[in-house]
Design a protein around this nucleic acid. Structure first.
Length: 98
DNA sequence: CATTTTTACAAAT
DNA sequence: ATTTGTAAAAATG
């Protein structure tokens, strides 16, 4: 666990639900645009696989890359989040009771 | 501690 | 599709 890892995790946590960000984006956010590889490398060894939405992080080329829990599940998770985001955008109900 | 290898990438060829 | 360039961590000595 290093500072770099922490930065990466924080940046990934900032990703809006239903949105996918590329490693480059995260890398730039943490301050090293060229460290995209290190980002993925850190993510794969992330100490909290459940609190870090690794499935939202994809490569800039659109490639899923890899997923410690299975890239297929990653795709499903992304689709689910996409639907959730859509629901949040058009709320058929005028108001959402909070 | 220093050097080498590996990496869930990206861009060029 | 293969190669090269990049930065950081893990492995090796």
């Amino acid at each position: 666990m290093t500072e770099f890892d922490l930065r990466v995790y924080k940046a990934v946590l900032k990703i809006p639900l239903g949105q996918t960000r590329s490693y480059q984006w995260v890398a730039r956010k943490i301050g090293s645009p060229l460290a995209s590889r290190a980002v993925g490398s850190a993510l794969k060894k992330n100490p909290w696989p459940l609190v870090i939405p690794c499935h939202r992080v994809v490569a800039a080329s659109g490639a899923i890359g890899g997923y410690s829990q299975g890239i297929n599940k990653k795709r499903l998770l992304l689709d689910l989040e996409r639907q959730i985001a859509k629901m949040m955008y058009n709320k058929k109900s005028k108001k959402v009771k909070k």
